[in-house]
Design a protein around this nucleic acid. Sequence first.
DNA 1: AAGACGAAAGTGGTTGA
DNA 2: TCAACAACTTTCGTCTT
Length: 325
Amino acid sequence: MDRIRSTDDKKGAAESSIELICCPECKSTTVVEDTTRGERVCGGCGLVLSDHRIDTGAEWRAFSTEESDSRSRVGAPLRYTVHDKGLSTVIDWRDRDTSGKKLSPTRRSEIYRLRKWQIRSRVHSSMDRNLAQAMSELERLSSQLGIPEPIRELAALLYRKSIIKKLVRGRSIEAMVAATLYAACRIREKPRPLDEVADASRIDRKKLGQCYRLLLRNLAIKIPLSNPVAYISRFASQLELSSPVQLRTVEILQRSRDIGLTIGRDPLGLAAAAIYVASIMLDERRTQREIAEVARVTEVTVRNRYKEIVKKLSIDSMGLEPIEH
DNA sequence: AAGACGAAAGTGGTTGA
DNA sequence: TCAACAACTTTCGTCTT
C-alpha cells in the first residue's frame, strides 16, 4: 500500500516534468497544479488549462503531519497503465452480498443484468478498445524488458497523448507502444538500445524508429541525447566487471566529452569503447567481441572508438595508464 | 587458435540544393 | 526528390599473443 501511494505522490511531478508544450497561448512548458481547486494553470500566463480534476489531496483539514497522513483519501491511485485509469466499478461474479449472504432471486437477476451491462460498457468506445489492447501490450513488453513501474506509467501517459493527437490511427498499436516505452526510458535517463526494444516487441527496428520520431515531432517532447554513462552499469554487470572499472569508465567518458570526442558518435559504441579501455587499465580485460555483443555494436566500432580515445586522451598504449596533464 | 587490427565495400539515415 | 555525406556494419585477410 505504501509503495502504491508513493508512486501516486510522484505522478503529479512526473506528468509536469516531461517537457511538453502545454499552454496554447504562451507555449509555456510549465504547469501549476492547484489540487485544492482542481485546476491546472499555465505557469507562464495563468491560463486555466483544465478544471474539475479529481482532488487527490486530504479529505479533511489536518493540524499535524500524522493527522494528514491518516486522513488522506482512500482508494487506489490513478493509473495510466489501466485503460480506464482504474476508476471503474467492478461487480463481483459471486451471487452474494457484502456480508456473504445469498441474494434473493429478484436481486440476483438485477445484479445479473447490471453485470452484463458493465461488461458491455466497460470497453465502450474505439479509443478505449485501443487503449485496453495497448496497455496489455505495454504490460507485456515492459515486464519482458524489466522496465520499472514509474517509466511504464510515463509510457502509458505518452500513449494516451498520442491517441488524442491521432498518431496511432493507421499505425500498429504494437509499434506505438514500443515507441512510447522507448521514449519513456530515454526521458527518465534509463535508455534501452533501440534494438533491444525492437527485439522484445514484434516489430522491426525501422518501424520503431519511425514511430519514435513521429512521437518526438508531434508531442513536442524534449528528450536529452542519451548519455553513454547511462549504459555502463548495465553493460558492466552483464560483463561482470567490478565497480572500480565502472568508475574509470565514467571518468574516461567524461574526459572524452570534454575534448569533443563524443559528438556525432553512437553512445552505445562510446560506452563500449570506454568500458574496453577501463577493463584493460584495471586488469579485468574483456575481449572486444564480448563488449561489442552486450553493447549491440560491432567490434569494428568498439575498435574505432577505442583508438580515438587512446589517441586523444593521451593514454599510453603499453600500460594504458593515463598521462596526467 | 583466439583475439586484435585494418582495408574496402555496403547500409540506412540525414542534410541541403 | 535526389545526391552527397558521415557514421556504422559486414566481410575478410593479416598480424600478434
